[in-house]
Design a protein around this nucleic acid. Structure first.
Length: 384
DNA sequence: TATCCGTGGGG
DNA sequence: TCCCCAAGGAT
């Protein structure tokens, strides 16, 4: 595999580009009156005002966004693309218009509404947080970072984002976008994650007193649309004149990252019991851990592939004429790949579910918290 | 500090 | 196909 940090032709000691000599760079899209954080912020905010993306959770120019909307969107956007979030955000807001409505929901409802979006601990924490805000804060989100940080599911990034965007606090959220923008702006050579503290400090040094929320969103928009991971569009970047990475000639080299480990494969057998009326045997996973609290088709444990596979039969949820289906379901999680063989058994409509399990007809799948891997299993067994 | 935790899209 | 990665948090 290619090593992005291959040997360099020349040493790269503090090329911290000078950022702007005296005169303004008249060629650039925006004017740079002087070097320094203030000028960068001014340039970026001007760009933001001209190119601001319209997103469902974003307030109009000059307005302040609803804290609940900011909260809901920020949780959903953790490690998740804007495109994936938009329909979920709308559905949640339609179903639970305020944090109090969300707090009053049952966790299973929240999980099933979240199904497909991934990282399901977020959904459990979202619900827990809504309850905490309703019970401990009278239904109003606290307006400072420190108090926000106390709430479940809200970490350093999200606390700073809500404080800045919803409450106009001078906070400095640092997400993957901002990490990339800052690492390029200052040509940070230290590999991630070790460079995080330095990048956070540099990011904080850029935040202006005025419009800190817009500034944070501008930095993220810049990272999402111009200062992209590959092939950044430096030619139209409002910060081009100040960018050390661009001055070096290879901005895409940043952020430098430590080499990654390799991803193991696990394997298992899923037992798809289908009744004559179409109902499928399902159960809920334990509250914590992988796919915590989500619905699943009963299966063997998912063991590391390679070592001799144990016999699946003893793990079957009930005695039935099980037959293996051809092929397998492959699903790749963040830190391992999973190969699931599916065994199917067709049962009479009168078959009863074992303790702790339930038969669910496909019409009711929408009420189940079915993660993608289980939707694949159902589709593979044509049980949908 | 390092792991664990999903999913879908892009190159 | 494969790898990267996207508005991270909890432990």
């Amino acid at each position: 595999m290619a090593d992005p940090s291959a040997p360099l032709a020349r040493p790269r000691r503090r090329i911290r580009a000078p950022a702007v000599p005296h005169e303004a760079a008249a060629e650039t899209p925006v004017r740079h009156e002087a070097a320094g954080a203030g000028a960068r912020a001014t340039a970026l905010l001007a760009w933001y005002d001209a190119h601001r993306r319209r997103l469902p959770w974003r307030a109009g120019a000059g307005e302040r966004a609803d804290p609940y909307h900011v909260f809901l969107s920020e949780i959903m956007l953790q490690q998740t693309t804007v495109k994936a979030v938009i329909p979920y955000f709308g559905a949640f807001l339609a179903r639970w218009p305020t944090v109090r409505h969300l707090a009053a929901a049952a966790q299973e409802e929240v999980l099933s509404q979240w199904a497909g979006l991934g990282y399901y601990a977020r959904a459990r924490n979202l619900h827990a947080c809504a309850k905490a805000v309703s019970e401990r804060h009278g239904g109003a989100f606290p307006d400072d970072e420190e108090a926000l940080l106390e709430l479940p599911g809200i970490g350093p990034y999200t606390a700073a984002a809500i404080a800045a965007i919803a409450f106009g606090r001078k906070a400095s959220p640092v997400d993957g976008n901002i990490e990339r923008v800052v690492s390029r702006l200052f040509a940070v050579d230290t590999p991630l994650p070790g460079a995080k503290p330095r990048i956070k400090a540099l990011a904080a040094s850029l935040v202006p007193d005025r419009r800190p929320g817009d500034f944070a969103q501008a930095m993220m928009d810049l990272g999402a649309t111009i200062c992209t991971p590959r092939a950044p569009a430096c030619g139209i970047c409002p910060l081009m004149a100040d960018c050390a990475a661009r001055a070096q000639g290879d901005p895409a080299r940043f952020p430098v990252k430590a080499a990654k480990g390799d991803k193991p494969t696990r394997a298992g057998t899923a037992f798809l019991a289908v009744r004559a009326d179409g109902a499928v045997l399902l159960r809920s996973r334990p509250e914590k851990g992988l796919l915590g609290g989500m619905t699943e088709v009963p299966s063997t444990p998912w063991e590391k592939a390679g070592a001799g596979h144990a016999d699946a039969r003893p793990h079957a949820p009930l005695a039935a004429p099980w037959r293996p289906l051809p092929g397998a379901v492959r699903h790749v999680f963040t830190h391992f790949a999973l190969d699931l063989v599916v065994w199917r058994a067709d049962l009479p409509a009168t078959a009863a579910a074992p303790a702790g399990m339930r038969f669910v007809v496909p019409r009711d799948f929408g009420r189940e918290a079915l993660p993608s891997v289980m939707r694949k299993v159902l589709a593979h067994g044509r049980a949908t």
